[in-house]
Design a protein around this nucleic acid. Sequence first.
DNA 1: CTAGGGTTAG
Length: 710
Amino acid sequence: MESSSENLVKTLLRNPSSIKTKSQAKQLHAQIVKTRGSRSVSLATIILGIYSDLNLLKESLEVFNNFRYVPTKAWKSVVRCYSCNGYFRDSLACFVEMRGWGKLPGRDVFPSVVRACTHLKELRVGESVHGCVIRFGLESDRYTGNALMNMYAKLQVLSHDYHVFDEIPLSDRVYSCRSSLAQDSEIGILIRSEKSHFESLGGRIVKNATGLDSVSKIFQMMPDKDVVSWNTVIGGNVQSGLYEEALERLREMSNAYLKPDCFTLSSVLPVFARHVDVLKGKEIHGYAIRHGFDKDEFIGSSLIDMYANCTRVEDSYRVFNLLSEKDDVSWNSVIAGCVQNGTFVEGLGLFRQMLAANVKPVEVSFSAILPACAHLTTLHLGKQLHAYIIRVGFNQNMYIASSLVDMYAKSGKIMTARLIFDRMEIHDSVSWTTIIMGYALNGHAREATILFENMQHDKIKPNAVAYLAILTACSHAGLVDEDLLGRAGRLMEAYKFINDMPIKPTGIIWATLLSACRVHKNVELAEKVAKEMTTADPGNMGPYLLLSNMYSAAGRWKDASKLRTNMKKKGMRKPPACSWIEVRNQVHAFVSGDTSHPYYDQIHVVLRDLYERLKQEGYVPQISEALHDVDEEQKSDLLYTHSERLAIAFGIISTPAGTTICIIKNLRVCVDCHTAIKFISKIMGRDIIVRDNSRFHLFKDGSCSCGDYW
DNA sequence: CTAGGGTTAG
């Protein structure tokens, strides 16, 4: 008995890779300790190697800590094991200590060390390790080369600011870097000792590096590139936004008779998502199916994202449903896809399903779903999410904080939005723009202007969206002078401002000025701006609709109808007006003229009753803006059935007296409804919030927060 | 040694 188990031990020790499980490894270890004690360094080294190959960190360290004299192979095992378990800092520290003992590193340890540098974003240390690789003549080792390419692809993209230091000599840059690791004295020594080799042999990679130079240099010098090498280069190109280069590498890869695998496909799919090229994306999808890759979670989420980006939400949904294993990324992809395509309710439903499926939401989950709450103004839900975000400590995440600022601003809680903004540790272009737009939507032009200045003091150059935000603020403001001439003057100022902007004005920016022209009834400028807008953004019917409304308002029926005919010729159709209201967590939607709601009869009674009381209060229907040149009776009928009135009437009968009624409308609220709602707020003693597609209106006691500018 | 998902926009 004794001898047969002895034979087995001997066989296993000769062939350690035959051990596949933790319990096998522990059994062998126990057997050795039992029969030969724990004194043998070579046996302990073998055992450590086995533990390390199985990624068993605790067991590896137990063996490692019992050495009085640590052999090279044991050092390497521990460095690898730390790295594989995500303890990158320990892995590097161990590597440095090993070098300090004069142990020689090899191809079996460099990939782990380089990987550790990559994860720690320690480019400087990584470069020193690269120097070490060159010193030991291992630059042609495939695994090491792949790891190095990956490191440069990831870290050099992150550090575009490096060229800022170009005029400083390389040596100073290495010593003065802010890296906490480089300040660690032992790793500092490593850097100093390896730097000279790096410079004399490897060349001045940092200094001359632009983008992926170092990566292609290593790639070209690699004698035997494998699929991983190609995948790394392709992935690096995609992450740097060099899409054409990535596709070119993909072609070269096939020419080299290497078949794209799961990694290749999930790396290139984002290219077609960005290009909105669903045909190419489908080709990849087909290839994935033919090679049995379509069950892969990575490819799945890339496909979901690609289809969603190409506005094919049903297709991304289908891919999602066919996935047998759905991880958090698959869920986040499909949720984000819904939200980005405006199907907010579906997005919320999927978010709930994700929680029900016991998939833990991560940061991305929240930044994906919060815009849905913002657009639907479901503040009660948004607040729940916010509470969770605070509990798990996600509130300093840039994406999440900006989404929260936007959600509160869009829900009319501009003070809360500001509080969150002020508590952010750093601000980027998006968070600045979000808070400026928040003030703009809430009608606080002055604060928006101040923040626009502050943003620039914060060294953030305004982009098109920021300009749009500040123009929105100005166009929504009651800041304009009261006399008509003054108004016209300010509009011309805005026109000049847009033309003088350092960036090319986008369609949306022109649209903002156009809506200001409408507020101030400046038809001449509106015609000019509408023309600019149709060139900047053809296919957008916004300018046609606005201009046509302005013609109608000015009684220029012929011009209005000519424009309408033109639109029809171009195949443009106005989306139906729709308003909705949330009552007891349920959304009730009303389309203009809609009679299908189960409570329509009561709604109609309320509307008729309201109409009478409004008239007594002095309300006169303002029909000048009605779109068509129809007779007066028809016009007032149209106004009577506008979707926002249906929603408000429903709000009145389904919520307790005195509570705020909150309505959302997909189009701009019309002048007559605006007047009527002012009266309704007074008569009914209700605050009424209407968020139209342009801004917020808080109706209170007969007046509106927008000061009648919108 | 290599891969996927997120914030602002009439």
